[in-house]
């Protein structure tokens, strides 16, 4: 048992599907603390890169190396999808599910799930069926389900894409708190305001490659490349 599965070393990783080159080659090191925001225009490969980092996509070339054995690394990270995947279960059982996978006693898992439901603000809905929740509630459930195993790293793919302002703020609050508790967060977003509010670091992705990366302050105030400048201005990047 290592203290953290970080750092993650990615070297020359590419993702190809049916002959199409989607992402890469990417070299990056994920370490430290805080929230990294993955930005870039549509089709720049944000989702694919996140899935690659999480292991949902295999690199066609190159390598990904966690500082922990594979299984342990897999278990100590979590992923929140853009469209939350709701199991056909009650809210409580949905949140408890990852715990039960590790042989946690059902009662204990449910107790933790109840706690997490409260923390993300869906404590009132624990007996309801997950599939009937509102969009915001579903995403909060997904967050609770991701955080319950206290991951070292949390990946999020535009979790607020379909949510209104209020739900977005609530989710941001949950993420900030998770960061403060030491969870390393990597999140893709389109929302410039959200990026400014949350980012400690920005990874700017263009045409499947990591165009630039660096501290958020620098990226937003002094974009170094013309493309980053154009992106921040809302210009269309080809």
């Amino acid at each position: 048992m290592v203290s953290s599965i970080l750092p993650l070393e990615v070297a020359g990783a590419c993702v190809r599907k049916r002959g199409a080159h989607l992402v890469g080659p990417v070299d990056l090191t994920l370490t430290g603390k805080g929230i990294s925001i993955l930005m870039g225009p549509n089709g720049s490969g944000k989702t694919t890169l996140l899935r690659l980092l999480h292991g949902l996509e295999r690199p066609a070339t190159g390598s990904l190396r966690w500082s922990a054995p594979a299984t342990e690394a897999r278990q100590r990270q979590a992923y929140v999808f853009q469209t939350p995947i709701m199991m056909r279960r009650s809210v409580l059982d949905s949140i408890a599910y990852p715990m039960t996978l590790h042989g946690e006693r059902r009662a204990r898992a449910r107790e933790m799930a109840r706690d997490w439901a409260e923390r993300v603000g869906i404590g009132h809905a624990i007996d309801r069926h997950a599939t009937v929740l509102s969009g915001g509630e579903k995403q909060k459930l997904a967050l609770a389900r991701a955080l319950i195993r206290q991951p070292d790293v949390l990946f999020l793919d535009e979790p607020c894409a379909n949510l209104d302002g209020r739900a977005t703020r609530e989710i941001e609050a949950i993420l900030t708190r998770a960061r403060d508790e030491g969870v390393r967060i990597v999140m893709a977003t389109h929302d410039m305001g959200q990026a400014r509010r949350l980012a400690d670091e920005v990874l700017f992705l263009l045409k499947g490659r990591l165009h630039s990366s660096g501290p958020a302050d620098t990226f937003f105030s002094h974009p170094r490349t013309p493309e980053a400048k154009a992106f921040l201005n809302g210009d269309i990047l080809e």
């Binding site: 949902l56 299984t71 897999r74 278990q75 992923y79 999808f81 995947i85 199991m87 599910y97 990852p98």
Partner: peptide
Amino acid sequence: EYHDLLISLN
């Protein structure tokens, strides 16, 4: 529907 989630949860 579940594929990604169940893979993600290892």
